[in-house]
């Protein structure tokens, strides 16, 4: 396999890991943010957590694997991005820590205040993670100050530009809708009605911020020169998928609504990676200083070894992770007798 082929392959693999992560943790984060708002009683909150209980941790590993794969395949990308986005990633880690520990600890004490506190930590942690990931990806698309030595020369506030914030906000809102659709699919009875009512209200906000993101993408990124005024089928399909979601929500077809927000997230990510390729980090200072799959990658030998490993193990992981979703496919009731704590 040629070097260039391997570099492209690993760009695609890492893109798939991120896409999978946004799709899976997208609803996990959404569910987490909705927890204190949609669950009023303890068993309702527990039921909400249990919709993602068996799977959220496995979903988060998509992020860890994306990080590890980036380290192995594109060390310069990993080094520049992780050191450059230092404080943003620190806050992301804080969010993930708060969230992760709370899922496990919130029910381990009967004291209502204890549970209440951990429920809010789940919500806040999920919100922080969604906002920061969205802002980080918007900034990657926009370009960040990187000098000739592949070093990031900005700071946290460089990332807090209007486009970055719109990216963060859109991610939060879309994840909320995605999470609500997932909950609609997994809960039953009165809880399900509550979720659907919420989705309806949220839908218009989601359309507004997504449209805003779409418009500003034409202003702040090089989408016009890269993809053209007509950006092609992927981003259009992504937008349409979100647009038609309301049709399914109104008809209580949560399965289809969930598929539509999933498509929206996946296709938005595909658009993002198409826009980036073959760059992995765009320098706003000088296009020649951008990191690309060619100047940021590992050696041909390492890429070959890692390709073999991925070829063997990725299908296995996908199989058993998919199997767990099948195993836990049933709707969750708020009946105390059946709730797992």
């Amino acid at each position: 396999m040629s070097y260039e082929f391997l570099q492209t392959l690993w760009f695609i693999l890492i893109a798939i890991l991120w896409i999978g992560f946004f799709f899976l943790e997208g609803f996990d984060f959404g569910v987490g943010m909705l927890l204190p708002f949609l669950g009023k009683k303890d068993e309702e909150r527990r039921a909400i957590i249990n919709t993602i209980g068996p799977t959220w941790d496995g979903n988060e590993v998509w992020l860890l694997t994306a990080g590890g794969a980036t380290f192995a395949a594109f060390p310069h990308w990993y080094a520049t991005m992780f050191s450059g986005f230092y404080l943003a990633l620190f806050l992301l880690l804080v969010g993930l820590i708060l969230r992760g520990i709370s899922f496990e600890y919130r029910s381990k004490d009967r004291e209502p205040r204890w549970r209440h506190r951990f429920d809010w930590m789940i919500a806040i942690g999920s919100f922080m993670a969604s906002l920061l990931l969205g802002a980080a990806f918007a900034n990657l698309a926009r370009g960040v100050p990187i000098n000739a030595d592949m070093m990031y020369t900005g700071n946290l506030f460089t990332l807090l530009n209007p486009y970055g914030l719109i990216g963060g906000l859109t991610t939060v809102v879309v994840f909320l809708l995605h999470g609500a659709n997932f909950l609609g699919l997994k809960l039953e009875g009165e809880m399900r009605e509550r979720v659907i009512a919420f989705s309806k209200k949220l839908y218009f906000t989601a359309m507004i911020v997504t449209t805003l993101l779409l418009v500003t993408t034409y202003i702040y990124t090089d989408i016009r020169t890269k993809l053209g005024i007509n950006p092609g089928i992927t981003p259009i399909a992504s937008y349409v998928a979100l647009l038609v979601t309301i049709y399914f929500i109104n008809r209580k077809l949560e399965g289809w609504a969930f598929i539509m927000t999933s498509l929206h997230i996946v296709l938005t990510q595909v658009t993002f990676f198409t826009l980036m390729f073959p760059r992995v980090m765009i320098s706003s200072l000088n296009p020649a200083w951008s990191l690309t799959i060619y100047n940021a990658s590992s050696s041909q030998y390492t890429l070959t070894v890692m390709s073999i490993v991925a070829l063997i193990f990725v299908p296995i992981v996908l199989a058993y992770q998919g199997w767990t979703y099948y195993m836990f496919r049933k709707r969750i009731s708020t009946d105390k007798k059946t709730l797992v704590y």
């Binding site: 249990n50 209980g53 068996p54 799977t55 959220w56 941790d57 496995g58 988060e60 590993v61 860890l64 694997t65 990080g67 590890g68 794969a69 980036t70 380290f71 192995a72 395949a73 060390p75 310069h76 990993y78 080094a79 590992s298 050696s299 390492t302 070894v305 890692m306 490993v309 991925a310 193990f313 990725v314 992981v317 058993y320 992770q321 767990t324 195993m327 836990f328 797992v340």
Partner: peptide
């Protein structure tokens, strides 16, 4: 060292993290 050190780290995530976290969920809720 990313060309070398990154490999075991990525393999750790792929082989081990997925395994333990996925099946921990199955064990707790299953």
């Amino acid at each position: 060292v990313g060309d070398i050190f990154g490999a075991p780290l990525a393999i750790e995530a792929l082989l081990a993290f997925f395994l333990e976290s996925t099946f921990l969920g199955v064990w707790i809720f299953g």
